[in-house]
Design a protein around this nucleic acid. Structure first.
Ligand SMILES: [Mn+2]
Ligand SMILES: [Mn+2]
Ligand SMILES: [Zn+2]
Ligand SMILES: [Zn+2]
Lengths: 147, 147
DNA sequence: TTTGATATTGATAATGAGTTTCATTCGCTG
DNA sequence: CAGCGAATGAAACTCATTATCAATATCAAA
């Protein structure tokens, strides 16, 4: 419930009213809980956490709200090829890509400006207009290399 | 049924016998049909194509065989976040990444050595051992920009 | 503050990709 | 050819996500 969370709350409120949608207690709870997470969570994981605070909350509401948060630019979808989508906050931090350990799932965030620029060069070389990109590096973390 | 296809056939045969698995008419047909494809196909798309040649072929057999081809290093899995996996031949060409049009799905293959090297630099910076990577650029192709 | 139009919710059913099960059939070796 | 294990196809299943829909909540207008 810090300043940052408050800002995000008003970003979401504004997005909702722009779309003629309503702020609800469920949406507030989901937003607040999502922002508290330290790791990238799936909708299902978030649902499990939310049930502790509100056992009546619905499965579908969580999925629906995560989609809204994504549209509002508050959450970002991550696809590590696990079969489900993970979400991370998209406002507080700079853009970054991920280096994931294939053994334990540990996850490092990095940003390499040179790579970012070279991507732009590739895209413009083919006359495309860049919309998005996804760069995931998969490896074995130092810890897992030992075992 | 060119030379290349023949080579791939023996790569697959050898892989199978190494694993104490058998070459079957279904596996031969799937391999042959997969190699003929010009575009990246999903298992389901390939199944639809295969049914024309062999209406008795099973759904599960196609999925199972594509997995085998991947293990044998003949096919590569592509994940463009569409909800299903696409496959491309992994032997004939060099490694490459993809630039995908988000409107029409058109797909450009590119290889940027500088990006590849910078990826390695990132991985080693964190002490990881690189296993794989996935770089997809999403944009709007020149054709779709006009409409 | 009441009302009413409409957005939202949660339970549940449905979907779609991919996997598992299992009885039957096939491929290979002896 | 016999026998054994691998492979197949049909069908059931899993798992993530989405659609449906009746009941409820929100909010602007009266
Ligand atoms: Mn992240
Ligand atoms: Mn390709
Ligand atoms: Zn690890
Ligand atoms: Zn296009």
């Amino acid at each position: 419930m810090n300043q940052n969370t408050k800002d995000i709350h008003s970003i979401f409120s504004q997005y909702l009213s722009e779309q003629n949608l309503r702020m609800t207690t469920q949406r507030e709870l989901i937003l607040k809980t999502f922002c508290k997470q330290k790791k990238h969570v799936t909708a299902e994981q978030l649902y499990e956490i939310l049930k502790k605070a509100d056992p009546t909350i619905g499965h579908a509401t969580v999925y629906r709200t995560m989609k809204l948060l994504t549209e509002a630019g508050i959450a970002r979808e991550l696809n590590f090829g696990e079969g489900s989508i993970r979400y991370e906050p998209d406002t507080s931090k700079e853009h970054h890509d991920h280096l994931v350990c294939v053994k334990c799932g540990e996850n490092i965030e990095f940003l390499d400006e040179e790579i970012e620029n070279l991507q732009k060069r590739v895209v413009s070389k083919y006359g495309y207009q860049l919309v998005d990109h996804s760069l995931n590096l998969y490896g074995i973390c130092p810890k897992c290399q030992k075992s």
